[in-house]
Design a protein around this nucleic acid. Structure first.
Lengths: 126, 126, 126, 126
DNA sequence: GTGGTCTAGACCACG
DNA sequence: GTGGTCTAGACCACC
């Protein structure tokens, strides 16, 4: 499983892990029923603390995206989640776009970035 | 100045305040040279501590977006910032879009949201 | 880590702490990758509030000199900074030298002081 | 009297004014007995608040550098002062040099800056 | 009247 | 155990 985390980023590491796994699920690279690597192994691969990965898995479980079965690992449960409110997502979107606009990125370039990411995320869904 | 903060959100309050002000600047609702409300007044309006607003202002000052002059208040200094790397913005964008896709939001609706926000942010720039 | 602060001085304490750490880094007494003491411990050592040290660390982080990782402490990241403009540094230098000249300090003695400090600061850079 | 202040700098404006006048005195451009401009006029020239200039004059008077006579303006009293302790000056010098070193300025260039400033300050003294 | 700094202490987030 | 955030309130510095 190809995941990269960066300790210097603003987002906490556990959330980076969770977000990357979410992206893999959304892209269809992790299908329903697929097994996730054991916590210890993923932690070792990423060079992070075991608790960090465990927290990420717990978050994904809380959102209903994965199922953790004691003693037999974790697997992808579903491609649907609804925990984050529409309003909160909109605020997050606005914050990101604001950042890009203030950084001087032209609107056309932002549009290209967005559609590029969207294409990657939705093609696996069909 | 219309700003809303939510103590329940993950983002710290001082960053919510800073982000909202950034959006107002990006939108052109706060022009260069415009005065910001005194920290104590904004703190009272938002129902938060003085220091929380002061921290937000300090962050904006550090990014070069506002100029604070001791004894005479704060004003908008610029509409440009460069603190966040392109790569970090891209990752943040991907995380938000992933969230939306997994929430089951159709691609067309996401596109509408994005362009709506973008329109609000870039029209003030002309 | 030997740091001394003086509450009577004009410079705020958090900046004194940051300045002292900067000097330790410039001197090479704190190498890149070295750990800084936990905020609470340094605060206790100096007899100041936790927040005061946290503010100093945050300032150093903003200048890129240290990296703070939530949950696992702070470490020296770099020996380079670029925040202060050349012109501002020159003006500050002039102010200090003016002070010394008006205090009646002979030019030769000032030169000795300067080269002594400079030697301490640049020898670690070899 | 050629004085420039910058509201964005770290030093408070009143201190910038005081420092600039000190430099003029140290350089010999303001001789003993010379009159200083009226507070109101200097404030108008600099575009700053009247109280700011008054505070600067008060500081200079406190250091014995100028004499303020009620109703007849201020004049340069002496070129000697001793209010700032040797230790505090040394600390200020160290902070400036640390800044320069961390900004990557080579030792040779710093030396040139220092001797250039020193030459300007001490030539008027002979 | 404006912002700046500091404290003491509480509680949370992260690894 | 580490840093982060917030509060309430005091006092200072600046314009």
């Amino acid at each position: 499983m190809r995941i990269i985390v960066d300790a210097q980023e603003h987002r906490p590491i556990y959330r980076q892990v969770a977000d990357e796994i979410k992206t893999l699920i959304a892209r269809g690279e992790l299908q329903e029923g697929a097994s996730l690597p054991p916590v210890r192994q993923l932690a070792a691969d990423l060079g992070v603390n075991l608790n960090t990965v465990a927290t990420a898995y717990r978050e994904l479980q809380g959102e209903g995206l994965i199922a953790i079965r004691h003693g037999s690992g974790a697997m992808v449960a579903s491609r649907r989640t609804e925990v984050t409110s529409r309003d909160e997502m909109r605020k997050a979107l606005r914050a990101v776009l604001t950042q890009m606009v203030l950084a001087g990125m032209p609107r056309s370039e932002i549009a290209v970035l967005v559609s590029g990411e969207l294409r990657g995320l939705t093609q696996g869904a069909k």
